Simulated assay, not measured.
Amino acid sequence: MAKLLGILLVLVLTLPSLGLVTVVVLLTPAVTACSMSSLAVGPIPDSLAARTRDGSAITLNRQQLTHAATIITVGSQTAGVGRPGALVALMAALTESTLRMLANSAAYPESAIYPNDGEGSDHDSLGLFQMRPVSGWGTVAQLMDSTYQARAFYGGPTGPNSGSPRGLLDIAGWQSLDPGVAAQSVEVSAYPDRYQNYQPVAEAILAALTARATNSPANEGPRVPETTRIVFPLPSGTYVDTSSYGWRTDPFTGEQTFHEGSDFAASGGTPILAIADGTVTFAGHRGGFGNLIIIEHTVGGERVASYYAHMWDAGVHVVTGSTVAAGQHIGDVGSSGRSTGTHLHLEIHPGSPESAPVNAVEWLAEHSAAGLQDGSVVPAGCIAATA
């Protein structure tokens, strides 16, 4: 190290401009991180074929790649992660679940009610990273949420667990560790050597999902691939249609006003599901909507935006820029903003978030939304309307 510093000192004295740039690049981690390719997620392919380090072939489907996109997106929004951290996280999730959101009905029967990609059976582990509630990683509801699991894996000052259990950013010097060793430091697996096997697959995912888009107009908005399916935004049997799209008596003013959404009364905390694959373009508080999530989708080649309103502060489980899958748990029913009771206010805007909304229930029916069955939506007037 002393010899290296001596060489640098000579460069500074003999070639001041070049020497200064060299010192900054070598000794400033932030500059090194900024020189790496972007972690912005582009279009998600329908499948990706790759090989593990031992030569085994693996093909990931679009659902698995969507989970990978969520992990990458959360990493891009978490200071200190960068591309190396996203690589470690992908290696861990590939090893633990092959990038599947796994329920575990034997240990937690309630885990099966959340959107999932199958059943796991490793003790009481859940989700993409096979995290255990008894180890303090989070509740069942939290661990069945891919965004929460990614935040927990990365940890650090903005992580949900305050360093216990430790996330990647809570491990001193993780950047200097082999990526497989870094993954094991978080997962604490009984099989510590298996993570390295998935490094080539994780690298292939990063290369495929973060490739820069070309010839894309600056005002085009996020590039959103065609959705794989349409689903109803609340679990069957948990809601009542209390105030549909159209003219109604405003519950606050008593005047006739046009209601641009559909209201579904449900108990506070009921899971809200994304109606289609897409990208979150807004997640936060907005006027009378209260806490609002806007997701943009591509359906039948057309851009469509969906609005989910009135969640409580703790009920928003995604952030702007997140990539979500149809049926993913994105929030919980609440009653924030201009609201008279716990419910989901849903709007569908074909074209863009600024376009005029259409009747959400009719749109979902026209697109054969899973979970929307005859009789599952009770006509308005059965119980008191909610705003």
Rank of each mutant, 00 (worst) to 15 (best):
Ala2Thr: 13
Leu8Asn: 06
Val10Lys: 09
Ser17Lys: 14
Val24Glu: 15
Val25Ala: 09
Ala33Met: 08
Cys34Phe: 15
Cys34Gly: 14
Ser35Tyr: 04
Met36Glu: 15
Ser37Leu: 12
Ala40Glu: 15
Ala40Lys: 07
Pro45His: 10
Ser47Tyr: 08
Ser47Gly: 05
Ser47Asp: 12
Arg53Ile: 15
Ala57Asn: 11
Leu60Cys: 12
Asn61Trp: 05
Leu65Trp: 13
His67Trp: 14
Ala69Trp: 01
Ile72Ser: 12
Thr73Val: 03
Gly75Asp: 07
Ala79Thr: 02
Val81Cys: 15
Ala86Val: 14
Ala93Pro: 06
Thr95Met: 01
Ser97Met: 09
Thr98Arg: 15
Thr98Ile: 07
Ser111Gln: 08
Ser111Phe: 02
Ile113Thr: 15
Asn116Pro: 12
Asp117Lys: 13
Gly118Gln: 13
Glu119Ser: 09
Asp122Arg: 09
Phe129Glu: 08
Thr139Met: 06
Gln142Phe: 08
Leu143Cys: 08
Met144Ala: 09
Ser146Asp: 11
Thr147Lys: 07
Ala150Gly: 10
Gly155Arg: 09
Pro157Tyr: 04
Pro157Gly: 11
Gly159Tyr: 11
Asn161Lys: 15
Ser162Tyr: 14
Ser164Ala: 15
Pro165Ser: 08
Leu168Ile: 08
Ser176Gln: 14
Gln184Phe: 01
Val186Met: 11
Ser189Pro: 02
Ala190Ile: 05
Tyr191Leu: 08
Pro192Ser: 03
Ala204Met: 04
Leu206Met: 09
Ala208Glu: 13
Ala208Phe: 09
Thr210Pro: 12
Thr210Glu: 09
Thr210Phe: 06
Ala213Gly: 11
Thr214Gln: 11
Asn215Thr: 00
Ala218Met: 00
Gly221Glu: 01
Pro222Tyr: 07
Val224Leu: 02
Thr228Val: 03
Val231Met: 06
Leu234Val: 07
Leu234Glu: 08
Thr238Phe: 14
Tyr239Asn: 15
Asp241Glu: 15
Thr242Phe: 02
Gly254Ser: 01
Thr257His: 00
Ser262Trp: 04
Ala265Gly: 13
Ser267Glu: 13
Ser267Ile: 08
Ser267Cys: 14
Leu273Val: 07
Leu273Met: 11
Gly278Lys: 03
Val280Asp: 11
Thr281Ile: 14
Gly284Thr: 04
His285Leu: 00
Arg286Phe: 02
Arg286Ile: 00
Gly288Ala: 09
Val299Ser: 01
Gly301Lys: 15
Tyr307Arg: 08
Ala309Lys: 02
His310Cys: 05
Met311Asn: 14
Asp313Lys: 10
Gly321Met: 04
Thr323Pro: 03
Ala326Gly: 05
His329Ala: 12
His329Ile: 10
Ile330Leu: 05
Ser336Cys: 03
Gly337Met: 00
Gly341Ala: 13
Ser352Cys: 05
Glu354Lys: 02
Ala370Asn: 12
Ala370Thr: 10
Ala370Tyr: 06
Gly371Ser: 06
Ser376Glu: 04
Gly381Gln: 02
